[in-house]
Design a binder for these strands. Structure first.
Lengths: 237, 237, 237, 237
DNA sequence: AATGAATGAGTATTCATTCAT
DNA sequence: AATGAATGAATACTCATTCAT
């Protein structure tokens, strides 16, 4: 009943209503009629703009992935590539080697900026992410969310963006990044509101705390002035 | 149609069928009739044993928690305590300090054994975990899965075991453990089958790779002979 | 999608699209949106030209009847009458009697020409006829197609043309003409395209074959030089 | 609302209700809820017994065809085959030749009995036939009613019933039988009730009149003591 | 312990139709 | 003449659940 009424055009209202309902009760449990009511439109109009409930979800996820891609690409270009061109890190088969302390610092700064942007992005889009995660847990045949995530990890979705160097992550590294960077990031966003309530901490504190954790993880990949691209921790220590 | 037929009694077959279907398609999307068909029983019999679909889910989650009790998820408490009693690590306000190399080694060995047990446990129970995760993403009012997880982290399962020492994790540390240990662990299990297919790696390789990643994370908390209980990475580096 | 596009004005395109769709899938099963798509116009335009789907159907049936007027379906009246006036067949209460062979021949020739015209007419208008037949099978209250057909048989289209002679077909004869001449004719047209495909025969062969069958039927009413107007086959043989 | 209520089991009531509604208003225009109401059951029960509205129709038509097949087969075996075995008609490539008047009489008697049974059958099943005809006019892709009819004509559905002699109808003869025997028969039944009202004749009179017309058609295939299996009327007379 | 029959309350989706522009 | 947006009223179909046996 929260008619944003004549506020914004109908299609937008449908999308936003669907988003918040999906995130709140889950995709399956959300009724088309609820979306309609919340958007202040008739059910029929929903079917005028979308072929069905599924298509609303696709639309939501699609536009999320597009936004995400642009952030990542931006970092790769303005962050890493710029530094590489300046010759600061040497690209070696299994690592980036920084010739001096300054390079390391600069890189870490750039990385931290990127992390901040990413964390802000996922917090902002936590609703869709929650849906995305929930849906990825339902293994319908074919591409489920997981494989989309992996595509992202192995060079940001757009394969044509083969940014100069052509190193490939090892299987170990992919798994590490998936379960100890990407998934934490997504679940952090997905559970953000719940966690805030349970922990009684303010949003800003959560954000800072999570960012710091990300730093720890990043530093764990550092070895002196090298940043490992392969996971070399001696196995079975 | 995979009637395990007269193999095992009906109730068990119902539970197993529900388990695998919930894990596969999600709770909402699983039809009681599907469970019945897969279990080789009639729908009515399901209602003879359970009050409804919800009760099957409760039963599943319940049995997960019971199984969890069989493994010491609160190793940190019991494992560490044992060592502490032996006087190996000194408990300091913000860290465990190992007096010698031997202590460190012993501790790490002990930790690694624990990790192996935990990873095997979650892999074994990956189906229920998948359901658990999926359901925790639906914020129905009241206790969702997340707060249960936090309880585990903060106190170990058994609250009464607040034995002896009274250190409390910092908020930072709780968040870190949740999003960079527990969640990775659970999602690793939940996505295990999917990931195996997508990555084309054998189960054993995934297991080893994940265990190694856990080690990396653990080591990142080490600082010489100390294991930090608070996340001290200089903020805002 | 077969936009005849700017080819012909919109109204015509709507009519033609509706015609072919009604004939193909039936009136009920044809969606206004399908007509619009096929005609290359918007749904709204259809409502600009017609008050609704029903009116398109009325228009179609109406135009069938108008076309029918262009051919002398009441040949029996006009054709025969002409010959009668020439004194060729003697009109007797229950039959036409031909005084000589020449009259018979002339009559048969005339009849065959008529049949050809009629068959060509129905083939040409097979789509509307198909719709007409299909609709006549739905017994909505009131005049359905059947009574219109009977009117044709009994009086020729134009009731006022009850010219001169006043013979009336017997009930037997009306039934015979309906089910063994008119209906075969209409169904032949209605099923023409289907039958062509199923039988793998060319259109011309079907036409010839059907015309020949009509001849057989006609001859069956002949008895020497008489053409029976009543069905005299000794009953209950 | 005509609950035959506890009269007969539910499935039968559903079938009968559907039958009469389909025949009355057409398949498309009949609502599942109407069937349910008329049968005195809930909609859901209809879906318990049938997969959908379509399946009810299939069931109806299927059982009609089965009944029809048994009548035809019966005639072929007890009627024709018996006479052939008695040697009465000689089977020739393009005709049956009767050696004497007695044979002809006997055959005609047998044929007339068959016609009576068939006509009674179609009148009795006029409702389903009406549906069948109406549906056959909608050319959905694949087997429509027409091809089923043709299969019947070319040796009664069951091809394995290759009753001794192996003559094949000519294309002309098939077309003739379809449009001047089978279709008249079916439409006669389909329009029976309407026609009775319009013509104001009693059912018995219609039946007799139609039977007589069938006789006329049959006789038109006779040529002295031969019954033609091919249509030999000299073309283009 | 087990089931076939039965149902109430949805639920997504459709579609002819309208209307402001 | 033409249309994109919008809708009310259906409608086929679903599904968790019940119950008599």
């Amino acid at each position: 009943m929260e008619h944003n009424s004549q506020n914004g055009d109908a299609k937008e209202r449908i999308i936003h209503s669907a988003l918040s309902l999906f995130a709140q009760k889950g995709f399956d449990a959300t009724r088309v009629s609820e979306i309609a009511k919340k958007a202040g439109v008739t059910k029929a109009l929903i079917y005028y703009y979308f072929t069905g409930k599924d298509e609303i979800l696709s639309h939501l996820i699609h536009s999320l992935l597009e936004k995400a891609a642009s952030i990542t690409l931006d970092f790769i270009h303005t962050g890493i590539m710029r530094l590489v061109k300046e010759g600061l890190p040497e690209v070696q088969p299994d690592r980036l080697h920084f010739v001096d302390e300054g390079g390391t610092k600069k890189f870490l700064k750039s990385l931290h900026d990127y992390y901040e942007r990413v964390v802000d992005f996922v917090i902002e889009n936590r609703q869709i992410l929650r849906i995305f995660l929930a849906e990825s847990l339902k293994s319908k045949k074919g591409k489920n969310g997981l494989s989309q995530l992996l595509d992202y990890i192995r060079f940001g979705k757009d394969k044509s963006s083969a940014c100069g160097s052509d190193f490939r992550y090892t299987d170990d590294m992919v798994l590490f990044k998936l379960f100890f960077s990407v998934i934490p990031l997504l679940t952090f966003a997905a559970y953000f509101d719940d966690y805030k309530i349970i922990s009684s901490l303010p949003a800003s504190a959560l954000r800072a705390s999570f960012l710091q954790s990300l730093q720890v993880i990043t530093l764990s990949l550092f070895s002196g002035r090298d940043i490992l691209l392969r996971n070399n921790a001696e196995r079975g220590t």
